[in-house]
Amino acid sequence: MPGIIGTLAAAVIAFAVLAVAGDAMPNWLVLVATLAFAKGLVALGIVALMRGGLVSFGQGTFYCAGAYAAGLAMRSFGIGDAAVLVALGAIAGLILGAIIAPLLAGYRGIFFATLTLALSMIVYGILNKTYSLGGSDGLNLHAPRFFGYQPAGSRNASYALFLFTSLVTVIAAALCRIHFDSVRGLLSHATRDNEIRVEYLGASVRWVNGINFVIAAALGGVGGALSALSLGHIDPDFAFWTTSGEFVFLAILSGYMSVAAVFGAAILLELVRSFSSQYFPNTWQGALGVFLLLIILFLPEGLGSLPLRLRPSGAKSARAPIEKFK
C-alpha cells in the first residue's frame, strides 16, 4: 500500500500524463474523457460508501444539486470561474449530504438503496415543476473561465475544461486514497464485514457511514458541477433514477479496491456508450446490460481487482469469498 507521499507522487504523475495525453487526443475524445471523469467522481463517492457496505441508488440527488448550484451561480450571480463553480457544487452536495446523512443512518442494504432512490425521485419531481429553474427543459450554461483565463476557440475551451477536470479528479482521487487507507477509512471495511464487532471495538458505525455518505455527497456535487460545465446544459434528468443507476453501474464495474479503476471504468463506459449508440442505436443499452452481467459473474470485485488477480500470489486474496449464512 503506497504511503501518503507515494499517493501524492502518483497523483502528480497522473496529472502530467493526462495533460500531455489530452493535448494529443482528438477533440471528441477530450470531451468524452471530461464527462467520464465528472461521472467517475460521482461513482467514486459510491465506492466510498460501498467500502462500508452501503450502496446508494440516489446519487443523482447530489449530482443534480451540484449541477444546479453551479448553474444558478453562473446565471443569477454571473460567476464564471470554473473553480468557484465546482467549489459551490461541492458545498451544495456537502450541505445536502450532511442534512440527509443523519436521516439515513439507521438504514442498510436494500432499504438504504430504496430510500436514497426515493429522495432523488422527489428532487426530480420537484425540479420538473419548478419553472423558475427551467422546469423539465432545464437551463443552459455558457463556457466558464479558468482562474481568470477565458479560452478562445472550441478546441482550447474543451482542452482547458479537460485539464481543469483532470486536476480536480486527480486531487479528489488522491484524497480518497489517503482517506481509504487511513484508520477511519479502514474502519469502513470492518463495518462492512461486521458492524457489531466495530461497535464493540469502540468505534461508531454511525459516524463511519455518515462521513462516507457526506464524502459521497460532496463528490456527487463536484461531479455534477463538472458535468454541467462540460455539457453546457442541466435538466432534472440529472436526478432521475437511471442516472443514479449508471453511477452504481460504474461503481460495481470498477469495484472498491482501486480508485484509479473508477476513472478507467468511466472512460471505458463512455467510449462503449458513444460507439455503440452510434453504431447500434437500438441495442446499446442491452449490450451494456450483458456487459454488466458478465462483469458481476466473472469479476465480482470489479475491474480494480484485475491487477491483483493476474498476479499469481495475489490471486487468492482478491477472491477470498466469505460464505455468509443469511
Binding site: 443507476g245 452504481v248 453501474f249 460495481i252 443499452q285 442491452g286 451494456l288 446490460g289 450483458v290 454488466l292 452481467l293 458481476i296
Partner: peptide, 8 residues
C-alpha cells in the same frame, strides 16, 4: 444490479 442489467 443483476436485475437492473436484465431491465436494460
Amino acid at each position: 444490479l443483476v436485475t437492473y442489467a436484465l431491465f436494460l
